[in-house]
Structure formats: structure tokens, C-alpha cells
Design a protein around this nucleic acid. Sequence first.
DNA 1: CAAGAATCCTGTCAGC
DNA 2: TGCTGACAGGATTCTT
Length: 279
Amino acid sequence: MPELPEVETVMRGLRPVLEGKRIARALVNRADLRWALPPHLAKRLTGARVENFRRRGKYILMRLQGGDSVLIHLGMSGRMLIGHVGANTETKHEHLVIETEDGGRVGFVDPRRFGSIDLVRTDAEDHHKLLAGMGPEPLDDAFNAASLSASLNDRRTPIKAALLDQSVVAGLGNIYVCEALFRAGISPLRLARTVPGARAARLVLEIKATLREAVAAGGSSLRDYVQPDGELGYFQHAWKVYGREGEPCPECPGMLGCKGIKRIVQLGRSTFYCPRAQR
DNA sequence: CAAGAATCCTGTCAGC
DNA sequence: TGCTGACAGGATTCTT
């Protein structure tokens, strides 16, 4: 679930609670997530000072003093529950708990257990199996019309599938791909190889704009997801097509040939788009 | 080799 | 109220 804006929001929420703090206690309640947690995770966390955070795609990296990074992926339903030691925080599916010396408490909650946590040496973060081969950060300058065109050129999949591929661009998921394609006026069914050129240039701009706006809004809060501080992100109200099957298209409402937002299935997942506005 | 399907797991919601 | 089936932010692994 959480896509780049939500992961970024979560990371920003963790900073004030953990950065510069020493971990007094760490507790693993359940180790069988997507992949088994490292056996010595709790031991490695306990007593460690948290230096800083970094986000890469949909991953959060928490750097510890001593040269290790904790690599966190929230999967579909993962979130970080922030509170205080001793406060009533009874929650199901809290697989990892971290308590800081100054009384802060962070719980990793993930009902579906598609998330994962691993340890990696900080100086080799990008060589980790899960990060190696990941495409450019969409908000970096390295992600531009030329680079996107190059990676779409030899692809025969629909553009929707290509953008969900993290090796093309890192951090996009189902929602933001739908939104960016709508804003760029590109059909999700269009073959990726036909996008390079002017369409790719427009697509890059819309991807960046959509993500920037979503980050500024604190992400999109769905059923399982709220910001670490419990506040709701509000970008879901700005969705133009996602989850809006049957509603009028914001681009061509009521115009001849516009039948509103349509839902189709690609890669087994819902795609929302306007067949008239997106070509 | 590339592209699509199946898969992991739990919760929620709509419909009957 | 309770049951059933569809569906949900992801991404690897298995089949065609």
C-alpha cells in the first residue's frame, strides 16, 4: 500500500521520535513476516543510537551508530505506531516494538505481514538484494524524459505495468500510477514503447507533481494507513480517478463521448481511467 | 526471455 | 446478525 508519499510521511514522523535517541529496549513479537526477521535484530537494536533516516523507493533505512542500517518495507498494510512507554497501546499485529531511553515508543504494525525488516551494512545499503536494481528516485533529476524514454523503449507491456515495475522508477504504486497517467493524458493500456518522446516528458512532469503534492498533503490515508502521529493524510481527497469508478471525468465531464471513470483490471489490480481523456 | 498468473496474509465491506 | 465472496497500498516466484 504505502507508496512513496506515505513512506516518506512515515519516515518524517519517525525522525523526531528516534533520531539521535538511544534504543533502550527492542522486542520482536513475531518474526515471520514476508521474510523472517534477522534472528539478532532485537539484540542489535538494543542499546544502539539512531543516527538518521533515508528513504529509497518504498523502503525506509534507519541508520544505527556502528554501521548497520535497518531496512524496513511496509508491504500493503504496514504502519508505524508512535506513542510513549507505558501508555495504553494494545494493538494486534504489532510485530516489533522499539522503546527509546527518553520514553518514546514505536511499534511496527502489519496485519497482512507483507512487510519486511532486514539489517544491512550502511556502506552497502544499495547493494542489498531488495535495493539493487531499483530504478531512479522519481523526484531526483536523474529521473527525466530521456531516462524514462530509454527504459520504456524496449518494453511491450502496457505503460501501467511498466510504471509499477520498481526497476523503471522507484516508489510508484497502484494509486499514484493511475493518478499520474490520468494527469498526463496517457491511457494505461498504451504500450510502454510508444510513450517515449513528448508523452514521456509530460508523464515525468505529472509523476513529479503528483508525488510532490501527495507528500505535501501527508500522503493518502486508507483503511490501514495513518501517519505515524495518528493524523490522517488528506491526499485521497485529491484523487482524480483512483476509486472513482462511474464518476464523471474531471477532464471532460459530460462531454460527448465521455462516459466517466472506468475501472479495468491489469496485472490483477484495479486501474481507473477515462478512455476519452487518456489516449 | 518476457509477460501474465498465482501467491503470501488479514481485514473490511457489500450483498444476501 | 451472520455468512460469502470480492477486493485492498506490494512484489517475488512460478507458469506459460
